[in-house]
Amino acid sequence: MTFSPELEARLAKMLESYPKGRERAALIPMLMYTQDEVGHISKELAEEVAKRCGVTTLQVEEVVGFYTMLRTKKMGKTHLQICTNISCLLVGGDELWQHASKKLGIGHNQVTADGSISLEEVECIGACSWAPAIQTNYDFHHYVTLDQLDKLIDDLRRIQ
C-alpha cells in the first residue's frame, strides 16, 4: 500500500522520531494519519502499518480497539462529534446531540445513508469554557446553538 507523497514524507519522518529499534512508537500516529487519508483502518491498512512499524496485525488490532478515534469502519465525509460531557451538558450539549441525531436519523457512531455525515457523542474535547462545543472532523465549533447546528448540518449534507 502506498500513500500520497506528503503522507509518505510525514510517515518517513515519523519513523525517525523515535529511538532506533523503537519503530513501534510510530504505530498510533501512523494509524491516525493514514486513517485520515484512507478513511478507516481497513484490514489492508492494518497490515501495512503493522509491517511498517514492525508489529503483528494482532498488535495493531489491540491498539485500534483501544482508541476511540481509530475506526475499523468507514465514517461519513464529515464526522460530526458532539460533546455531551459535564461542561457542555450544563449549557445544552445534550440538546445538540438529540437534535443532530433526530435530524440526521442516525445514532452514535452511525453514518447517514448518503455517507455525508457520521455522528458521534464524544467525551470532553477540551472546549469546556467555550461550551457547548462540537467538532467536525478536526475543526472545533464553540458556543454552538441549535440554529447554528441546524445550518451546519444542512451545509455538510451538501458536501458530497
Binding site: 484490514k43 494482532l58 488490532e61 480497539g65 483501544f66
Partner: peptide, 20 residues
C-alpha cells in the same frame, strides 16, 4: 507465540486470537 491479544476497552475488553 504471541497468538493472543486484548482488544476493545473497559468492560468490553476481550481476548483476541491472532488471525481475526
Amino acid at each position: 507465540v504471541t497468538a493472543l491479544g486484548i482488544t476493545h476497552r473497559g468492560a468490553y475488553s476481550e481476548i483476541t486470537p491472532n488471525k481475526g
